[in-house]
Design a protein around this nucleic acid. Sequence first.
DNA 1: ATAGGGTTAG
Length: 695
Amino acid sequence: MSSLRCTITKNPIIFLVDTSTTLNQLKQIHTQLLINGILNDPHLFGQFVASIALNNPINLTYSNRLLDHCHNPTLFTFNSMIRAHCKSSTPHKSFEFYKRILASTHRLSPDNYTFNFLVRSCAQILSLESGMLVHGSVLKHGFDSDPHVQSGLIFMYAEMGCLDSCHKVFDQIPVPDLVCQTAIVSACAKWGEVVLARKLFDEMPVRDLIAWSAMIAGYAQCGLSRKALDLFNLMQIEGVKVNEVSMVSVLSACTHLGALDQGRWAHAYIEKNRLKMTVTLGTALIDMYAKCGDMNKAMEVFRCMRERNVYTWTSVINGLAMNGAGKKCLELFSMMKQAGVRPNEVTFISVLRGCSVVGLVEEGREHFDSMRRVYRIEPQLEHYGCLVDLYGRAGHLDEALNVIDDMPMKPHAGAWGALLNACTIYKNTEMGELASRKLVELEAKNHGAYVLLSNIYADSKEWDKVTDVRQVMKAKGVKKLPGCSAIEVDGEVHEFFVGDESHPRYNEIEFMLGEISRRLKLAGYVANTKPVLFDIEEEEKEDALCKHSEKIAIAFGLISLKQHQPISIVKNLRVCWDCHDVTMMISKIFDREITVRDRNRFHHFKDGQCSCKGYCTRIRDTIMILLVCSFKKQSSSSSSNSGSDENSSEKPAIILKVVDPPEPKIVVIMAGDEKPSFLAMPAVSSTICRCDHQV
DNA sequence: ATAGGGTTAG
């Protein structure tokens, strides 16, 4: 304590407390300060409170109590408390201190620091209502010309998804500084205006590392991984140094593209330039290797990491599940628990999928039950979906259906999709029909018009609902992704979207597509008698199946890679059944090994077979064609609004089930129709396309 | 005495 006394008299109080100060030490220091009467000085008291609150969030309660007993805290003290709370897990408490500033008997008035921190608290709690109130106070107190407050407001509205408000704030700044410019770029990229984001980025007179990172991350987050990497290259040409934060976005782009070579290069860069191997960076590396098919390397990085958080463990567990290593996946899960890292809801999804791929039904069920029992995690839709999948793939279809029936919430497309998948494996057409019907029903409602919805609520000033919608969006990471396949040739990634004809070698690709089609036919593959399951789970509903992005990528692989080189494709969505079968055939006819990584797992095609075997087979004799037709139901008696669309609604339409292939018939099932009518089947062309029926 | 923008797992 004598050394402490010395410190107190000689140094500013701020040096007394740091991040490693324990509660006990804190109490001792506090006692000494009281004895010395040092805390009577409001200035020093403020410093003491600030150092406690800011250094260690665990001590926040201590500083809260300290302040309760103080009658005349300074504005600095209050600001420090608001600042400490906006970073904490209890950001809403900032407002208590804001209120105390306003109610202060010493005529305190909030300043630019107050609002800077307060705005960030609003961003934390995602309360648009509070945000608007605070914004109003900012204007009232005249701090809207403070650049810190400006960037704070943009950041806050961006967090809540109110892009319009971001623009309003930004447009009113006469000369926005670098930080505000970066904030608006990030906001635009985050909410779908990526072209505008790039325009604003290009117009920036000066761009620092964070500005580059924001734009690269923006591309990576909305699925434009190719552009993210291009921009990264440009950044290096301009001589901007990369740090560990920006590298994470680059790795994320490599992951999504399946660009293993570039990912390896990034790893080498990290080591050569001695970037700090943070948990986040290490996790991004693991995820990259796992999803680019090099699970060994992923494990190696994992083993080398000193610090591992729940993201790290989940990435590696998920990687093992994706690669079909179910047992190993469960081993790691058990190690994770031993290491004292608490699994979260995402971890359980990976664990359940691990159980599913190796058919460990009992174990999976136990883990599912432990979620609630041990970890107090309420299973969500996704977990029930995994459970349906677990039972379904193991052939326990009734139990799978029971899971759906017993779900405490309305089953989603994923759950019915999992059941349908199981029904096709085990050829249960009856249950399959039920599942298909439910799927179509749900699909029609699944328009994902979140933004629209929240704007409607905002217009009617229902802020709570806006907040709800935004939270759901944030939680679910709602993003619209076009179907896209990538292939790396000589270290360069070529990306193909659905029906994409933009590649410089597209003429050759098209020729190869024709060649594939010709040789498949020669080998007896006749598309129009082959089953086509229209995969309505995914968003690819383009007309010509032959223009699916993975087929274009495979065709490009065939023309650009040497005979002995395996073709490795990465797709951002799930591979549809038709492409799956065609790829199997190609692997045989062209004598090529083809690996396709889709959204869920790896498919290794060789000699006409796929490694996912039982899990990918489907009904061959009973052909099901699911044809989803969007059509507008004619408004039956809409005389009041002549010709308006108001009474029309998008409705699920028709499921066509083809039975007995040689002379196929079509079962037409209307949604909600109990008696299907039979029609003779017209010549079904190989391209099953969307049809717009009028009923 | 105190500030701001970019990052990871389903």
